[in-house]
Design a binder for these strands. Structure first.
Lengths: 344, 344
DNA sequence: TTCCGGTCTCGAAACGTTTCGATACCCGTG
DNA sequence: CACGGGTATCGAAACGTTTCGAGACCGGAA
């Protein structure tokens, strides 16, 4: 690849002049500017971002760390992040942690060594305090998605409220025996949603049968297994069965729906199901999934914006910025997997 | 961040010794090696990949260019790519082209300026010859996914055969009036699949009614619209209606399934539906989608492998490497959206 | 004519590494 | 004791930029 030296030589100017001319910064005569630009075009010159970064001591790359590339939850988030970043002229470097804290740490170090201008942490396998301390090197701005316990800046959603909304909707549409397929223990979002579910029930004086509470792993297969267990292995007779089900996320809800279909249990007549997340697929399953939708794309955009803002105002994460949080609203999306309100 | 200079000073050695000691390359006495490593740990030293790259003239990053981060088709591919790359110690930089050739070109230049060691092109909005010529700068190894017409090395799948398999399966299970929801014109995969569909029909002496052939955009919404149009706006009476439907990809099939459900048309009894792709969601829709599955993850892994191999053996895309192609097998996944064979 | 101010251009230093040739040292051999 | 060969360490150059201070040139004012 041609270097700026080649361009300078071809244009018959010094390297420094070429540099200045190409970026239109300092004072250059119109004539030389044209000559330099022409030379650059002729040589198909692309500035070497690496060399540039070395001297300016900043890159235009940000790292995005997520726990599973394959999880639809992240897709719109990633899209939002990418959109904002690329518009701002930043490149996105990406790592999948497979929900392993070690991998996350490794990726974090790689990002640091790549001198990323900042990074976005979206979902890990752990919310461990000690873990976060490792990330607190302070020399690179960080924004997290949904880890508001970490002490790091964060864009998040009120998971407690989201689950509460989900359960309330079931209650309002006539359900009284409401079960839960919770997400994996140890994951903040999962815990909070369980909490919201319990709170909603308590507020309405309902106490859930422990047999109605299951644990999944946020995958459709996990939701499927959980629902199967609920209806086949827990010794529930017709009157013990839940008539409503909150799933910790849409994917588990979708898996559960499949199980219920196979068991011949009608949704929403015999049991209403509500998810949390608002992934696009929810619209295409049978019945279409009622869900508490998270503003996924907006979350990605907001995180990227916030990071950019931190990057521009320079320096690592200053202490006073630390408590910065953005809370986004969720919205209940009523489709057919729950009863219509009038039909209660 | 600490630099190697700091480490050297702390360890009481020269920079060059520190460098050698840290990488365990040249000859260093055990004692100094330990001292240097200890100093590095104490300072939390991370080598600056940027500086390193500048002198070694190679980076350990590869660029992945895809047309829509939101399209499930890419998710497992990206997962596969990420997995082999990160195992090999490479970082992944990612760009979403939104199916726009201009954006693709722009991302390509950004990748070049980032000095990526190589890049993977997965899906664009165009298969234009002139477009590819622009990418032929030859100074960075490229592997494409599914663009075997481009003259660039490629891992691909026989789309003609895949669609043929899909249509054949319908024919073998008793369908005679087989429709098509094709992908967007101009996209190679879409064209090839249409071709395969036509070929299969021709081989069995079936000629499709042009009213059964629709065009979608590879999204569920597109599939939904197409199916709606097929059954409500094309003036087909009971006997004109197709009894089988090939969708250009799974997503359109899933959209179509929803439309059919809403229209009260039973699948597979009244019309059997088969998709192409094998995305995970297919298992969770109603009825579960029969599909010709592409080995998505493997495709990603293979592309990354191939690229790595090219990178290691140094230099840009040499002419003789140009025709290198890897063809992967597809497999028919029979689920319930088509009739069982015995029920023909 | 001299000097000043402004405009344009240039050379050199710096960024954090790796790499290469040179140097210093030690040990064993002749 | 001199010498050769190996081993450990070092200094300097290089990678492709940006940036900064200095220099060259020009026109106009004194």
């Amino acid at each position: 690849m041609a270097t700026i030296k080649d361009v300078a030589k071809l244009a018959g100017v010094s390297v420094s002049t070429a540099s200045v001319a190409l970026r239109g910064k300092g004072p250059v005569s119109e004539a030389t500017r044209r000559r330099v630009i022409e030379a650059a075009r002729a040589l198909d010159y692309q500035p070497n971002a690496i060399a540039r970064s070395l001297v300016t001591r900043r890159t235009r790359t940000v790292g995005l760390l997520l726990s599973d590339l394959t999880d639809p939850y992240f897709h719109e988030i990633a899209k939002g992040v990418e959109a904002v970043l690329s518009r701002a002229g930043y490149a996105l470097i990406l790592a999948d942690t497979d929900r392993s804290p070690e991998k996350e740490l490794r990726a974090y170090e790689i990002f640091r060594s790549q001198q990323v201008a900042g990074m976005i942490l979206a979902g890990s396998g752990t919310e461990d305090e000690a873990h976060f301390e490792q990330l607190e090197k302070r020399d690179v701005p960080i924004v997290t998605l949904g880890r508001h316990r970490s002490g790091l800046p964060c864009v998040a959603v009120d998971n407690v409220q989201a689950a509460k909304t989900a359960a309330q909707h079931l209650i309002e549409t006539g359900c009284r025996r409401i079960g839960l397929i919770a997400g994996p223990p140890g994951l903040l979002a999962a815990e909070e949603r369980r909490e919201g579910y319990l709170a909603a029930l308590a507020e309405h004086g309902l106490s859930p049968d422990p047999r109605w509470m299951l644990v999944g792993d946020f995958t459709p297969a996990g939701g499927y297994r959980a629902a199967m267990e609920l209806f086949t292995a827990r010794g529930l007779d017709r009157h013990d069965r839940p008539d409503g089900l909150v799933a910790g996320n849409d994917q588990m809800a979708i898996g559960a729906l499949k199980a219920l279909r196979e068991l011949g249990i009608r949704v929403p007549e015999e049991i209403a199901v509500v998810g949390i997340g608002g992934i696009p697929t929810g619209e295409y399953v049978e019945p279409p999934l009622t869900t508490v939708a998270l503003p996924l794309k907006t979350m990605g955009e907001a995180a990227a914006q916030m990071l950019l803002c931190r990057i521009e105002r320079g320096g690592g994460s200053l202490p006073e910025q630390h408590e910065e949080h953005i809370w986004l609203e969720t919205t209940l999306l009523v489709r057919s997997s729950t009863r219509a309100r009038s039909a209660r």
